[in-house]
Design a protein around this nucleic acid. Structure first.
Lengths: 199, 199
DNA sequence: CTGTACAGACCATTTGGTCGGTAATATCTT
DNA sequence: AAGATATTACCGACCAAATGGTCTGTACAG
């Protein structure tokens, strides 16, 4: 296999690049037409032929799984990138989550998160599986922050709801960010009868 | 046309009943498979034939429009039914909205609201239209309540996010209702730096 | 000459939508 | 009152287009 080593490397580079195109294209198409996504649509948007598409993903289901998986990964990375380790109040992860969803980046709001965007995909058990795994992961991560669980849920779901509304064009970027700031505040001050007692 | 009057009445009764079946079935199917909804699936679930279905709705698009329209109507009615006119604090409508979405009724959480459930339908301009109209209507209704607009948005989106999570099985009913109570509280006490000053 | 990335014709199935037919019910005619 | 007629609800065979997926061929890197 020494022969093939070199091949594999450049081939892999190309392969990875078109796979990126395909995943992006698919996510975009899903954002537009939901589960009605078509292989032809994706191939078109990705600038490859149907054969090309099938070369990388053996079928529609496999493609969908890959898309969801990839979106989950990217969202995790985005949130991690928004972590502010210099913060001392509990709730670092939750705040990063909020910043990511409500920062005004349409991509993040649109394609990421435990996103409503992916509705309909829940119907497919294989996909439900990877989504559930992601759900569990996030619940654990956010719980580690040391905040009142109820405050976590309220803030988190508010962020998701806001992001969804934003992605549907129901919120302006300014409004979204204003709301985000209030959510961040809530992670420090708590909510109503659920005040946060520092440290 | 006096001739047809009687016919039309009983026929309308029957017609209305099967239309109800069809709309419910379609909403259910959409909840499962999203935009990939199929006329055959709907006909099956509604217990009618394809011909029967086409008799009531002239095409897929017309059916989708009817479903969305109907869902919007039912949601409005549900919220109105949850109004508590004996409340004296501002925010009656918002609280009814929250109660409806986060009351634990899966139907309401699943099929109603400016619901993420309907994603993918946004891609169809005709549907986008009726959804946008509904969006505007709700914004006006909620704004009439006399609450801080930012508090309205936070509470509302949180309720929607919670309902979405609940419909995906990510929230228990008890957790949902606990969160609901806190949201209701927020409409009275305000949030963080946005305290509500009672009128 | 081998293995990989990709193209595009091709095929079986599915899907949206049409159409002719039937049963039921109400109205009109006599 | 009784049939003829009209109108509506609904069925299911049928068709053309779209869709998922296969297969053969080609270009190119090593």
């Amino acid at each position: 296999m020494t022969t093939a080593r070199g091949i594999e490397r450049t081939a892999e580079r190309n392969s990875t690049r078109t796979q990126r195109h395909i995943l992006d294209a698919a996510a975009h198409v899903i954002g537009e037409v939901g589960t009605a996504m078509t292989l032809a649509q994706v191939a078109d948007a990705a600038g490859v032929s149907k054969g090309g598409l099938m070369h990388h993903y053996s079928g529609r289901l496999q493609l969908l799984i890959a898309v969801v998986d990839d979106a989950n990964d990217r969202f995790r990375e985005a949130v991690t990138g928004n972590l502010d380790l210099s913060e001392n109040a509990p709730g670092k992860m939750l705040r990063a989550y909020v910043r990511t969803l409500c920062g005004g980046d349409l991509e993040a709001a649109n394609y990421f998160g435990s996103a409503p965007i992916w509705n309909g995909l829940y119907g497919l058990p294989e996909i439900r599986e990877v989504m559930d795994a992601d759900t569990v992961w996030w619940e654990q991560q956010l719980a580690l922050d040391g905040l009142d669980p109820l405050v976590i849920r309220i803030v988190r779901r508010a962020a998701e709801g806001l992001a969804a509304a934003y992605s549907y064009g129901e919120e302006t970027k300014e409004d979204l960010q204003e709301a985000r700031d209030l959510l961040l505040e809530m992670t420090v001050q708590g909510v109503g009868s659920h005040q946060v007692n520092p440290g």
